[in-house]
């Protein structure tokens, strides 16, 4: 996946949620990306963040770092893991998708 496109998309999503209170913004960014990005895209973003996350907004990095750590967010439910291609850093955190659901 072309990382520059993913960075741009992730930043755009961050721009939308940035106006919300921080906890909600973090949640919103992660949920949106979780619900609408194909696993390979999420994996590529993780790899990019793992290698420093150049170009990504700090808020986005914070949201996604938390997300890739796995289902630690309160009220989050585990999704049925249906495939091996799920994000490497941790299984998806939200059963019903997030913002896009």
């Amino acid at each position: 996946m072309q990382v520059s496109n993913l960075v741009r998309m992730a930043n755009q999503i961050t721009d939308f949620f940035a106006v919300y209170p921080k906890e909600e913004a973090l949640d919103g960014i992660a949920k949106h990306i979780h619900a609408s990005w194909e696993p390979r895209m999420r994996n590529a973003l993780k790899a990019h963040i793992d290698s420093g996350g150049a170009g990504l907004q700090p808020l986005c990095i914070e949201a996604m770092t938390q997300y890739y750590r796995g289902p630690k967010i309160p009220n989050a439910r585990r999704v049925h893991p249906t495939r091996s291609a799920a994000p490497k850093g941790g299984e998806p955190s939200f059963a019903d998708g997030g913002g896009d659901g």
Partner: peptide, 24 residues
Amino acid sequence: HVANVEARTQFEREWKVELSGEPG
């Protein structure tokens, strides 16, 4: 949403195949 287990199970039953719960 494809991650919605209830909906996915419904389609899996009707179509007789295991479906992916991840967005494409």
